[in-house]
Simulated assay, not measured.
Amino acid sequence: MSERAVVLIDGGYLNKILPALLPGRKIDYEKFSDMVCGNCERLRTYYYNCMPYQSSPVTPEESEKYSKMNQFIRRLEQLSRFQIKLGRLQKYYNETGDVVYKQKRMDVLLAVDMAQLSWSRNISTAILVAGDSDFVPVVQTAKDAGVLVKLYYSDIAVHDELLTSADDKIKITPEMLEKVALRKFI
């Protein structure tokens, strides 16, 4: 079997770090995926995120955000070897009464895919783009299956425990993103 990799992208994580690392610009997700795979064949890229929250009735602002995200997801679906996995956004009120939105099912979807791909022996390398310590158990599960786990992260948001658990840790830098930046703003 040739060296094959899968890229697992926490879309919410990338949305959080990209504005600071590549202000006002977007990246080419296919080029990014191929770049992080290096010499490995990219079996597939899995992109995990949630559609924006929609209240009832939907506000014009919510409708616009949903439409933009839907267009972005449709573009990703057209890319070679991409699969989109969507969770849902849940609205909560914190202790002070402020509205808080939390992603639901995202970590579990990613963890199930990573574990299944690792134990099925379909991949030799799992490339995780995330920063959440909730992924520590699945990183260990993949390693137990003999899969090399590479973590792509930013110092802007990463848990030390996740850094410690990964085999290889590669810091996402502005210079790295510049190589896969789209030349026009979309």
Rank of each mutant, 00 (worst) to 15 (best):
E41T: 05
M106I: 15
R4M: 15
L182E: 13
L163F: 09
K85F: 02
R74S: 09
L18D: 04
K26H: 10
Y92R: 00
F72S: 04
P60S: 09
V100R: 04
A157D: 15
K143Y: 07
H159L: 05
C37Q: 03
Q78R: 03
V100E: 02
S33K: 00
Y152A: 01
P19T: 09
L182C: 04
E3R: 07
I172Q: 07
M1R: 14
F185Q: 12
V138G: 04
C50I: 08
R183Y: 06
R74W: 04
M35L: 15
E178Y: 08
C37M: 01
V100G: 00
A20F: 13
Q83I: 02
R88V: 00
V180E: 11
T164A: 14
I27C: 09
D98H: 14
S56T: 13
E175T: 01
D98N: 13
Q116S: 09
N15M: 10
D34P: 02
M176E: 09
N70P: 03
K104Y: 15
G11H: 10
F82L: 04
S133E: 05
Y93W: 01
M69G: 02
K184A: 03
T164V: 06
L89F: 13
T45Q: 12
F32K: 01
L18H: 08
K171W: 12
P52D: 15
I27Y: 10
M69K: 14
L151Q: 05
E41H: 06
S118L: 12
Y29P: 02
I84W: 12
T141K: 15
R44Q: 11
V6R: 07
W119C: 00
Y153C: 03
G87I: 00
V138T: 15
I9P: 03
D132A: 01
Q83F: 03
Y48W: 07
E95I: 00
K16P: 06
K143H: 11
K150E: 05
T45S: 15
T125C: 12
T45W: 11
E161S: 00
Y66H: 03
L89D: 13
Y53E: 00
P137K: 08
G97A: 11
K26A: 13
A20H: 13
Q103V: 01
G24D: 11
I123N: 10
R25E: 13
A145E: 13
N94D: 15
Y93S: 08
K85I: 02
L14A: 08
V100Y: 05
T59V: 03
T59L: 05
R25V: 03
Y53A: 01
K150C: 02
K171C: 11
L148S: 06
S120A: 10
Q103D: 14
R88D: 05
L86N: 09
A115W: 03
V6Q: 10
